[in-house]
Amino acid sequence: MPLDSAAFVALINAHQALIQRVCRLYCQGADDRQDLYQEIVLQLWRAYPHYEPRAKVSTWLYRVALNVAISDLRQRTRKPSAARFGDTMPDLALPLDAGPDADDLAQLYRAIERLSEVEKAFVLLYLEERTYEEIADILGITQNNVRVKMHRVQEKLRQLLTHPA
């Protein structure tokens, strides 16, 4: 590894939670999540020499992480999330200390689970409190498009919550 590996390792450790949240949304099983986490770190390492410190680090991280989660060839080998979805509660996302509204939360997670990969990206970036400008920058689309798509995704989620399959 080159000399600046310490800086990279520090950067990853500082943003570990962000990467884990991406994995949490895109993978069901712990193994798949670990697999995706590792792949994202690897691709960040490969992209690191081209990283410009002027750019927002979160944008850079989200871009690489989502590119891996959505467009990576190895994605083919990962188990499709729909195959695991059913009446059972997803094991990935629901936090252990979900609180008194655990059922509602579980239902919402199930609904999110049924979204497409691109729709999940919108949900993720929304949950991560990214601005429309940053979302547009991460996904490479216009802010207007982000607004429209976000509205559609939220609408779809509402429908999935009111009419769960």
Partner: peptide
């Protein structure tokens, strides 16, 4: 090109 990069998702795809 199949390697994920730091490009925006749409450009990458």
């Amino acid at each position: 090109q199949l390697r994920p990069t730091a490009q925006a998702l749409q450009q990458q795809v």
